[in-house]
Design a protein around this nucleic acid. Structure first.
Lengths: 172, 172
DNA sequence: TATTGTTATACTCTATAACTATA
DNA sequence: TATAGTTATAGAGTATAACAATA
């Protein structure tokens, strides 16, 4: 059976000893060792995405700035006439997850559904004028958030983006 | 009102014209333009994390290899005597999300809860012998997954990890 | 008063499977 | 038969708020 003392002794000795004491007396999480997790990309990917998501939500009290809405509207703006299936593939999500988003966007008159000539099963998506205005608003908010990420990435931004792109592309 | 034809025309002319036709005749998602999203770190972070998560689940049919369990058990292994609050902070999640995980791990006799001398509100976590064995299994599976990520990151792995760490650290 | 851990509750994101209407 | 989109349903993962015990 491992004792607490054993656990403590496994740490390499360092200056933190002065702050040591009962667990509740320790500094927030400075001393916690990640162990095997330390070198796991998947783990750090989750931490980073989670932190980004929380910051995104926190910074814009705007409940309408949902990551989902913003991404879908951007895709439609850049690809007028895009179909739900194409949006699904571009955003790496199942088609069924798009139905409610597109319904909401449609109800808010932000997008319109146009017939696809030659395929009655599908429809083509386009932003309405209102939708374009709304997207400008959302983009302004999102930019504030991503600017922080830009600062954090600094000169490595292009490299980070390339790596993330490779991960999502090759892992399918 | 924007027409579909207008939308198509907005694309810069390129060799893809040969593959163009009705949307359903197009290649999977090659032609979809990300537009503003192209340079958003947050967006690519979500794509990458999602792809990683799906691959993780797909590759190990093992329903017990939940990212949550693995991370928590690893943290306990590397920090015997760690408290739930410390795990919460180290994994960037609210303390309330840990309760059910710790309960499950406890029910499976993978961890034990020991008293913390000097603080009756909390308890110290440690892996049981069974827990250590189980963690070895899970780690073997997880390693297979992360090896793929390692390959994808290649020589940039250290840099990627450093960037992800910076993101989760500075965004709080 | 503040903190730890638990509980109750709810929200978001996502997926699967079955369905329809086309193709 | 296969595909596009919808529906119903479920499962992770996470959060907030209120609570009891303790600090």
């Amino acid at each position: 059976m491992p004792s607490l003392a054993k656990g403590r002794n496994e740490r390499p000795p360092n200056g933190d000893e002065t702050a040591a004491g009962t667990p509740s007396e320790r500094a927030p999480n400075t001393e916690i060792r990640l162990g095997a997790l330390e070198h796991y990309i998947a783990f750090h990917l989750r931490l980073a995405q989670n932190a980004s998501f929380k910051a995104f939500k926190r910074e814009s009290g705007d409940p309408e700035l949902r990551p989902g809405w913003f991404a879908v509207m951007s895709l439609i703006e850049s690809n007028p006439g895009i179909t739900p299936m194409m949006v699904s593939r571009a955003s790496g999500r199942d088609k069924s997850t798009l139905t409610p988003i597109l319904r909401d966007l449609s109800h808010h008159d932000l997008i319109e559904r146009l017939p696809v000539p030659g395929d009655k099963r599908s429809y083509a998506l386009a932003l309405t004028t209102t939708g374009r205005e709304k997207l400008r608003e959302l983009a302004a908010h999102a930019a504030i958030h991503d600017r922080k990420l830009d600062q954090i990435a600094g000169s490595k931004k292009a490299e980070l983006l390339a790596l993330l792109r490779r991960i999502s592309t090759l892992l399918n």
